[in-house]
Design a binder for these strands. Sequence first.
DNA 1: CAGAATCCGGGCCGATACTG
DNA 2: CAGTATCGGCCCGGATTCTG
Lengths: 124, 124
Amino acid sequence: MAADPSGETCALREVLALIGDKWSAQVLVQLGTGPRRFTELERTIEGISRRMLTLSLRNLERNGLVLRTVYPDSPPRVEYATTPLIEEIIEPLEALADWAKRSRPAVAAARRAYDDRQFAVARQ
Amino acid sequence: MAADPSGETCALREVLALIGDKWSAQVLVQLGTGPRRFTELERTIEGISRRMLTLSLRNLERNGLVLRTVYPDSPPRVEYATTPLIEEIIEPLEALADWAKRSRPAVAAARRAYDDRQFAVARQ
DNA sequence: CAGAATCCGGGCCGATACTG
DNA sequence: CAGTATCGGCCCGGATTCTG
């Protein structure tokens, strides 16, 4: 049996390489609701640093997921928007987010149970 | 406007914390097709080290995504299987993988175009 | 406003060796 | 077979400073 005949796991690796880092997925979700300026994103995505926002946007732009438009204004104005490529990935991403919201209690309970078991083993 | 009224991006963070690392998603996909023993997984998931497989499985188990069963045999026999929690996440994951496969050419083209632009700027 | 440049610490992960 | 333990490199990402 081949390890991955249909390339499923390989494809998963690719997705995670694109948007599996700390911030990219959140940037995508934000842009999914409409174009945003740099500082808007910085304010909306809580905890992101300027550096990381820049790097994330650059990487997304490079892979064709984000369109960057510079308007020759002063002060400078740059807008980020989705590309057609993104629009198809937003849905699976939101499915994942939905799963997370639904499963939050179950995950928390599993974690407590596991940690309790570990604690019981440790003190025995 | 609240940053994330429905908790979408927060939920995304949680998912990525669970399965966003280098190997967990692949482990899940493997287990999605049926229970596996430790060494089976190690062989099937190309490139994974014993240490990383152990850590990934432990983490997945802790969060209630994987069930670990030890059979009192000699030599030892341990089986890993999905939990009901997993079964609902597999589908969105495969949707992501499908997207990756469909979008591979577009992403590659975008990357080439971007890199060419950078190259042109650099040598100008 | 929208970045670029630099420094730096933590942890992710691989390699290797050892065990019941 | 199914792990654990330890060491070490690398890179992700945060803080800070500077710029057009």
